[in-house]
């Protein structure tokens, strides 16, 4: 099984440690991982801002870069969701069809493809999970509180529950949006920040030490708010916790 590592642009630039943890974790779990260096961005920021028509070249490029791989795995639910759901803007070539089907968010990949049930990791802190919307509702990574469907499972919690020493917080609103929303964060900064403050308050109420999630963009927004508040609550991508040593 050949895995193409998909490191979204802002993780590449702002959070290289998340890319490293993703890479190391996949290696640890026995995957044959390659990072194709031609990759840039999936096009999501433009498309969510209403400019999908300007991002067609990026979809085609993504198809070219990643089509050689059986699976394309990345640490971002929203980017993966974008590839799967919104690459209908370009002709459905073999490349495009293959990457739309083969692109996976890492926690989903770990649980549903690799069937990981015994992670060897330890993280002795109280952790609150932020369920980022596009992964949560778009990819179905978590339990969607609006639905009356008792069969839903959270892949993130399935993995975190395998981590020794971790304590997961129970939040009042476990799947409320943090307010990042891509361009929304700068076109509607006041609402965006208020929503972030509300999310942070829910986690703080449970005395969490770390807020984690499967989307670094939301976590960047949450981290920005925590830093402005002078809080010592940390933010970590879920792969950083899953990749921690025993």
């Amino acid at each position: 099984m050949k895995v193409g590592l998909f490191i979204p642009c802002f993780i590449d630039q702002f959070y290289p440690e998340v890319g490293k943890a993703t890479y190391e974790l996949l290696l640890k779990l026995g995957c044959d991982v390659d990072y194709p260096s031609g990759q840039t961005c999936c096009g999501q920021p433009m498309a969510n801002g209403g400019h999908a028509h300007d991002s067609k070249g990026l979809a085609i490029k993504f198809g070219e870069v990643f089509s050689p791989y059986d699976y394309i795995v990345g640490p971002s639910g929203s980017c993966v969701n974008h590839v799967r759901e919104h690459y209908d803007i370009v002709p459905q070539t073999e490349n495009i069809k293959k990457v739309r089907k083969g692109t996976w968010e890492i926690s989903d990949f770990l649980v549903n493809i690799l069937k990981v049930d015994n992670l060897k990791a330890r993280f002795s802190k109280k952790v609150g999970v932020h369920n980022s919307c596009h992964g949560h509702r778009g990819l179905g990574l978590g339990v969607q509180t609006e639905l009356n469907d008792p069969t839903q499972v959270s892949v993130i919690e399935t993995l975190l529950n395998q981590v020794e020493g971790i304590e997961l917080a129970e939040l009042d609103h476990p799947d409320e949006c943090c307010g990042f929303g891509g361009t929304f964060s700068v076109t509607e900064p006041t609402v965006s920040v208020q929503m972030g403050i509300n999310r942070v308050a829910d986690h703080k109420k449970q005395d969490v030490e770390v807020i984690t999630g499967a989307d670094m963009s939301c976590l960047m927004h949450i981290q920005g708010i925590l830093k402005r508040q002078g809080s010592n609550v940390e933010v970590k991508h879920v792969v950083e916790i899953l990749n921690s040593e025993l």
């Binding site: 969510n48 209403g50 919307c133 596009h134 509702r137 778009g138 609006e146 799947d175 949006c177 307010g179 990042f180 929303g181 891509g182 361009t183 929304f184 076109t187 509607e188 965006s192 929503m195």
Partner: peptide, 8 residues
């Protein structure tokens, strides 16, 4: 545009 596209 007055939305984060959260899907709720």
């Amino acid at each position: 545009f007055a939305s984060t596209l959260c899907g709720s």
